[in-house]
Nucleic acid binder design. Structure first.
Lengths: 153, 153
DNA sequence: ATACTTGCAAATGATTTGCCAGTGT
DNA sequence: ACACTGGCAAATCATTTGCAAGTAT
């Protein structure tokens, strides 16, 4: 599953646009999907499937299995991006605006965005020396943040 | 568990040296450890715990749980390096000579070393823009190899 | 009405942990 | 002898899959 036929592609600026994207792709607007989308819009940063399944409020939750299926669907139509931090569960974010990668600390789990310029520089280095097309947008760079580096010393 | 007291540190050039390193750290030379070490010396590249548990021959195998424990021990005394490729099981290699990182293909699973110069360049870029100390030696860069990129198009 | 979806249970794959019997030293 | 290890079973964690019942359209 690489590209969806007629996928919205670009970005989503709000619930209405997301709903429209679902309809445009012939997908149904179910309550489970609404919960996940609202949780994605409410999220402060990349969230796990489990966090998203709970929704913004704590009471209404959608099944985890369904959530995984829906996140996969949303990713297929280009509304969501799936990220992998070296440790723990995968995380999902809405695809809005410019893409960038993340660095995450293998010790404390903290993470922060790297910015398009940095990602581009890293990708160029990798491509030039190995021929591989690095996926920094999906797999974060793992390392030690300044704080943990200090503790270690 | 960051550094082992009196760890051998450097590199291993053969079974005898590995055995000596175990003894130097007050660890016992058990058959299970011999199997894993021999498998590591016989391996063509980074191998999974399951592959190593089988040993070079197929018949003599050590328990998987013990193998994980032993690999952890060997890593603690600096004989082994633990690698993470984005997908699938973690892999282990003997620590001999120069360290380098790997790039691996998220599609076909292929991987290849990046070389110290490339790793240094990547690390510098990451440190300069985020302050993080990237661990390219343990977590490989994930991407698409030239072949899979071509298939995709 | 009829696919598309959900929710629940159960299966997977990778690792880890508890525990007691076995064995290097 | 005795603490360190090995082996086996069972527990975790993240994610997937099978299916029957539910529901957008």
């Amino acid at each position: 599953m690489t590209a969806a036929p007629g996928a919205a592609g670009a970005a989503v600026d709000g619930m209405p646009a997301a709903i429209a994207a679902l309809r445009a792709n012939g997908l149904r607007v179910s309550s489970a999907r609404r919960i996940v989308l609202e949780a994605l819009f409410a999220a402060a940063g990349p969230a796990t499937a489990e966090e998203l399944a709970a929704g913004p409020g704590l009471i209404p939750r959608s099944d985890l299995a369904s959530t995984y299926r829906n996140l996969e669907t949303l990713e297929a139509i280009g509304l969501v991006r799936h990220l992998h931090f070296g440790q723990g569960a995968g995380r999902y974010v809405l695809r809005r605006g410019e893409e960038s990668g993340y660095v995450s600390c293998r010790h404390c789990g903290a993470y922060e965005p790297m910015g398009a310029a940095t990602v581009a520089a890293l990708s160029d280095t990798v491509r030039d020396s190995t021929g591989y097309d690095a996926a920094f947008a999906s797999f974060s760079v793992i390392g030690l943040c300044a704080a943990c580096r200090a503790d270690d010393a």
